[in-house]
Design a protein around this nucleic acid. Structure first.
Lengths: 211, 211
DNA sequence: TACGCATCTTTACAACGTATATATACACTG
DNA sequence: CAGTGTATATATACGTTGTAAAGATGCGTA
């Protein structure tokens, strides 16, 4: 039970939670720094004691999202022993997660114009590895899901370079599918499950002959 | 040679061109309605005579982008007779186009928070088919590239339902790859071409056994 | 010539991110 | 226990944005 005091005590987390709630309930448009602060019950400048700017707050949300995704994938890993099944489960979990949390997923892997007014240059969120100003927290969290996927592929393929390329291909496939689904570019037929659709969508021979 | 007059004469196109130039030169952050108007040499409210709001201007840019992409894909179609080669060419062209025009591509298929202040609800661009407020122009243009891809697949596969699913899978793959590359989540090894990487990235058996 | 209407400008406003300066209260030090 | 430094939160202010509302301009047509 928290009492109202001048010093919040755990404002940083409270802000992240408020932001996540706002994102879920009202979408990205409503996710203004001021709205987040108001929801947390503090002045609109309070967040600046905990985050350098809006971008950094969004990055914390994205990091949280990657942790959640990794959690779900780890559950798959516990249940699936066969590597092939695991890869398909990962993909299904990935797409499902994105569809269940579209706003969050956009924040994680899409780009979001954070609408910064003053800052010159790149004011967009995205986990872009080379991008400057990326928090270490996010950088690390963002790599987890792909790491898991790579591990699964390494159980199916021996050539290490192929492992990476194939895992990147799989990531591209599920990310692209998630993104296109979220943006409404197509829909999965009603009579199909996500898993079934995913399995059918994998491109087949002869395009995938080893080159 | 145009003279300065009160009525511009072709402001609509001038605005779209100015916006495209701004997007290319300064990125999405700089793409404010006011900046576009200034670049076109008109007052910041002039665009409202030709576009309902900022979103509609952005949609026109996106539509132009889809036309350009379709143009390039048609060039592939002229040169490739083999259906398999054509599919791979389409994919390569697609990813190349995205990497050469990252800002434009984001506008086309990513979501862009247009930072509308007043408007309630969904103020994001994206070609989402079900989304309300989508211009017919964009709706139509956005479907062209996928239509071409589907056509190519229909030359390789007989089952019409499989054609769609496979084409969607291919689109997902190249879109995901383009998006992840643009956002910097990974890079193609230097010793590989886009085409080579794409071919290698296609998931192989036994995941792609017909189910 | 006069009028109607599309086009463009002027003015105004609320919301946003954030810079600066200030107030508050907790953790130490003595 | 008193005093003080520092982390935290607030108050105020500014520039930029999208866009609403009302007025100015000039072209096509009656």
């Amino acid at each position: 039970m928290k009492e109202k005091k001048y010093h919040h005590g755990d404002l940083r987390n409270a802000l992240v939670e408020a932001a996540i709630a706002l994102l879920r309930e009202q979408g990205a448009e409503a996710l203004s720094l001021r709205a987040v602060a108001a929801r947390a019950g503090v002045s609109h400048m309070a967040p600046y004691s905990h985050f350098k700017n809006k971008k950094q707050l969004l990055q914390s949300i994205a990091a949280w999202g990657f942790k959640e995704l990794a959690k779900r994938m780890l559950q798959d890993a516990e249940q699936q022993s066969d590597a092939d099944e695991l890869v398909l489960s990962y993909g299904t979990t990935y797409v499902t997660f994105a569809l269940e949390n579209p706003q969050l997923y956009r924040l994680m892997l899409g780009q979001v114009d954070t609408a910064g007014r003053r800052n010159s240059g790149n004011d967009r969120i995205s986990v872009a590895i080379n991008q400057p100003g990326l928090s270490e927290e996010l950088d690390e969290c963002a790599k987890r899901p792909f790491g898991l996927l790579s591990d699964a592929f390494s159980q199916r393929i021996t050539n290490p370079e192929q492992v990476t390329t194939q895992a990147l291909g799989a990531w591209s496939l599920v990310h692209g599918m998630a993104a296109l689904l979220i943006e409404g570019h197509f829909t999965i037929p009603e009579h199909m499950s996500i898993k079934g659709f995913l399995a059918q969508a994998v491109i087949r021979a002869p395009l995938n002959q080893p080159t």
